[in-house]
Amino acid sequence: MNRLVRAFGGPTGLIGGAIVVLVIAMALLAPAISPFDPDAVALDRQLTPPDLLHWFGTDQSGRDILSRVIWGARPSLEIGIGSVLVSILFGLPLGLVAGFNQGSWVEQVIMRTLDAVAAIPTLIWAIAVVGILGVGVSQLGPLAIGNQTKVTILLGLLYIPGLARIIYVATLVEAQADYVAARRLQGVPGWKILFSDVLPNTLSPVIVHATLQIAVGIILEAAISFVGLGVQPPAASWGNMLAASRNFVFSGEWWLSVFPGLFISITVIGFNLMGDGIRDVLDPRRKLTMAPA
């Protein structure tokens, strides 16, 4: 147990890790554990408060909220995790190349372009782009891109500047290290030094940032779905459940908004605690103080 706590950087990190594992398990096992069909309308059971049959109550169409919260974890996590993967796919090489070519035009072009993208807030970008493209299926050449994929890719692209800058700074530092000069002396070409020697030393801040960014992605999914541009009804997502519940907040049907909101909060806290824990584990100064334990 002690080793498990240390692996997550302390008890809070372990709690975060446990929350993340539970939420992911919930999303994966949705067909098995959700008590009802999340989309089944039951007009005789509209807006029933939580009871033994419907633990989280039902919504205005009589759909079981517990089932919808369970199924709604899927798009939230898919968008949260998928967008971070997209940002790593592009941001990692960009940051590495910019940092390794300090002082050249390559660095200037990459970093100034990313600055320009980062100058407009992510949520505004996302709403503007989805608003222009529409929430339906977009046809990109032969590819049909559904709205959820569109949001995932879009958020991923918008994360690139933040992620790339973190890798850029880490690469700047590493590129000065003597082992890079030693590798050059061995006659190893620059791109190979960059990807096989420098890259592993830049990964720990990336892992921390990625974990924290998943939480941001879950919130942004909720925000985009809340304004009606994300996951489209009747499919359930935590964001569009909140959106649909807004008419009932002041009419007493609290369970419509509280449960999806609660799951967003718990999941985001889980990813944040886990990210903080991982940062503590990967930080060498922290490692020194924990080593003798």
Partner: peptide
């Protein structure tokens, strides 16, 4: 310390 790659 700087001449050796800490990752390997």
């Amino acid at each position: 310390l700087s001449a050796l790659n800490p990752a390997f």
